[in-house]
Simulated assay, not measured.
Amino acid sequence: MDELQMIATLLDEEPSGEAAAAGRRRLTAEIRDRRRRPALPRLPLFGGIGVAAAAAGVAGVLLLSSGTSPRAPDPVEARPMSAQAVLLSAAKQAEAAPATGRYWHLRTLMSRPVQVGPKGNRYWVDKRSVTETWTLRSGRSASGFRDVGARPSTQADAAAWKRDGSPTSWDLGRGDTVDGAHIIVHSGPRPGEVNKVTGPGTFTVCDKEMSFAQVRALPAEPAALKDAVVDAMRNNDDGPVPAAARNGFVQQCLAGLLADVPAAPKVRGAAYRALATMPAVKVIGRTTDERGRKGIGLVLQSGDRGPVTRLVIDPRTSLVLSASVAQTGELAKLRSKSGTTVYLQVGWTDDGPRVPALP
């Protein structure tokens, strides 16, 4: 049985209680250890992927053997090999993925915490929205947006919301737009919209704006792709990346190619293979995304006391199911820097732009 079959089989097996507990303890310890380290690099987020608690939903530890079930040798020695096996198997699937259809289509459900409520009774709600983009090979594109509605983030926030009279909307004040309009957060869904993008659409790759043609021209060989990412790091639109953040920047650039942009199948495969060479990429085991879809959890460490990026991927298809980042150190106090992105649909389609439906 090859690696891909073994990994796929794991998704259909429930982890033992001991394995699940071990996975949670190990990930918690890793995050705690990173919080003790000095330096606070910036967070170069990739392509709309947000931030959330990395320890949520850990379902066990993936340790591959020659059989169909996981075993438990020394986790320190087994973790890098497990991560490499998962990533290389996903690379095979990515390289074989179809690339036919008129539009590159991306549909995501994004959740961001927002603090609301009166003085003395402040609380957090998760503002949720669906975003879609459709891009032709010519570069012309359209985008759709729809508010899904906000809900209290935790039970404590729900109690504070009730004390506030259970409001159905919140006025956050004037935004930083040209017209200075007020930002209103609603608890229920709102009408959506779809708009054509003026001029050729671009994609954010490693903090650089790239055209459709530039994205498609990225190298399809792991070492060359990694070199291109390093070059983008040195010349990105936001200025030089601090030394302490460079490893995390490269990881997130590669991860951004897995779902956010219309990279060619072989380029997506090369991104997986390049990530497989990075020892800071670890497997946390079988898990589910925020919508209950089964996958394998990966953790990308982003430097000393930097953010912890968590991906849930489906190794059968190579698709990213969800992405989140847990802030550490001083930034962990800033809940507004957190959030999550669930990938509802990614790939080529002949279906044209339309107002986003509710998830």
Rank of each mutant, 00 (worst) to 15 (best):
M210D: 04
P191M: 13
G188P: 04
A220F: 03
W161F: 03
D207E: 14
A156K: 14
G144D: 05
K208N: 10
P200Y: 15
D176S: 13
P152L: 15
S143P: 01
T154F: 01
S141E: 01
V148S: 04
M210I: 09
A158Q: 14
D171K: 08
E209A: 14
D171Q: 12
A224R: 07
Q214V: 02
R140G: 02
V215S: 05
T168N: 09
A213L: 12
A220D: 10
G188V: 07
D227S: 11
A223Q: 07
V194I: 05
P191D: 15
R151M: 13
A150K: 08
P222C: 08
V148E: 00
H182S: 13
S141L: 00
D207K: 02
D157W: 02
S143V: 08
V148L: 11
A158C: 04
P191S: 10
E221Y: 01
P189F: 15
G165A: 02
A156W: 06
G144L: 00
L218Q: 10
R190L: 14
V205E: 00
R163P: 06
R174W: 03
A160G: 03
D207H: 13
F203D: 06
D164H: 00
P200H: 12
S211D: 09
L172D: 07
V205W: 07
R140S: 07
D171G: 08
N195E: 12
A150W: 01
I184D: 02
A159Y: 03
W161S: 01
F212N: 03
E221G: 07
V215K: 06
S153W: 07
H186Q: 02
A224P: 05
S138D: 14
V194N: 04
S166C: 12
A224E: 07
H182E: 05
A158D: 07
D164Q: 05
S187F: 02
A213I: 03
H186M: 00
D176V: 09
S166Y: 02
D207S: 02
H182D: 06
R146F: 00
K162A: 15
S187M: 13
S141N: 04
R216P: 04
H182W: 07
K162C: 13
G201L: 02
G149C: 06
D164T: 03
S138T: 11
I184C: 13
T204Q: 14
F212T: 09
G144K: 04
M210Y: 02
G201Y: 00
I184F: 08
A181L: 09
R146E: 12
S153H: 09
A217N: 07
F145Y: 11
T202S: 10
P152S: 15
S138N: 11
A181W: 11
V178Q: 08
F203M: 14
P167H: 09
D176A: 12
V185C: 08
S187Y: 01
G165S: 10
R151A: 15
R174I: 05
V194E: 11
G139H: 02
V194R: 10
G165D: 10
E193T: 14
K208M: 09
K196T: 04
G199F: 06
A156S: 01
D157F: 05
G149L: 03
